[in-house]
């Protein structure tokens, strides 16, 4: 490393500024190059990823349209627990509306927000629910994520499949401990309580706004 003791303070300042500037320009250029090289691939895999989660909650038989491009952007919606914009995917079968895929948030998880994706059929039945993001205690509250659930044959989250307010009264959308319908592992009731509450509210929202959502023009 070179040192230049003779330089005065302003001189040194100028020299350091120039050298650091050169380094920054150089490495930012490298970064920009890599970014432009990888961008298409990343976008492609992101889309693939998005689609894969949707497939988990929505059976392939329920749609034939390009879901990723038939979406509505919602503003912050309290019913969905969203305090920011969120997306709604509209599934159509032979041009007819068949289901809605919503992004919801359970804000009162044990360790912060729990993000959900849920699909609601046009008849008001839930097609499926998945957790997309959570920070629940490993080994305690994380069984809401089927990947972490010990019960592999019938993960906890699949309890929602096929349920609607017709089959289960709105009052019973509670965990058993609070006198409702849903199972919950002993000792970890905060997490399922939050999820059940969020799903109930989102389902209600979907039922009430279905027509409006299908009518509104597609985003983009």
């Amino acid at each position: 490393m070179s040192t230049a003791k003779e330089l005065t303070a302003p001189g040194m300042a100028a020299r350091s500024a120039v050298i650091l500037f050169l380094f920054v320009i150089g490495f930012t250029a490298v970064l920009a190059t890599v970014f432009s090289m990888t961008e298409p691939t990343i976008k492609a895999s992101a889309a693939e990823e998005e689609m894969r989660t949707i497939k988990e909650v929505l059976p392939a038989a329920l749609y034939d349209n390009d879901l990723l491009h038939d979406t509505v952007d919602l503003p912050a919606t309290a019913e969905l627990g969203q305090d920011d914009n969120s997306k709604v995917y509209r599934a159509r079968l032979a041009g007819q509306p068949s289901a809605l895929v919503l992004q919801a948030v359970a804000p009162d998880g044990y360790a912060g927000k729990i993000r959900l994706l849920l699909a609601v059929r046009n008849d008001g039945r839930l097609a499926g629910v998945r957790i997309t993001q959570h920070k629940e205690t490993p080994g305690l509250g994380d069984y809401i994520d089927p990947k972490k659930d010990k019960n592999k044959s019938r993960p906890w989250i699949t309890q929602f499949d096929g349920l609607s307010f017709d089959t289960l009264g709105e009052k019973d959308w509670k965990v058993k401990k609070d006198g409702g319908h849903f199972d919950a592992n002993a000792g970890a009731t905060v997490t399922p309580r939050a999820v059940v509450k969020a799903v109930r509210k989102a389902l209600k929202f979907a039922n009430e706004n279905r027509d409006r959502l299908f009518v509104s023009t597609a985003a983009k």
Binding site: L7, T8, A9, P10, M12, A13, A14, R15, S16, A17, V18, I19, L20, F21, F23, V24, I25, T28, A32
Partner: peptide, 26 residues
């Protein structure tokens, strides 16, 4: 992209100048 590079470059100039100055002064 351009603005990002500009911000980085500006930061570099300011910080570099500060550090160079301090290395002599202190």
């Amino acid at each position: 992209m351009i603005s990002a590079i500009a911000v980085m470059a500006l930061g570099a100039v300011i910080l570099g100048a500060l550090l160079g100055y301090a290395s002599v002064k202190f």
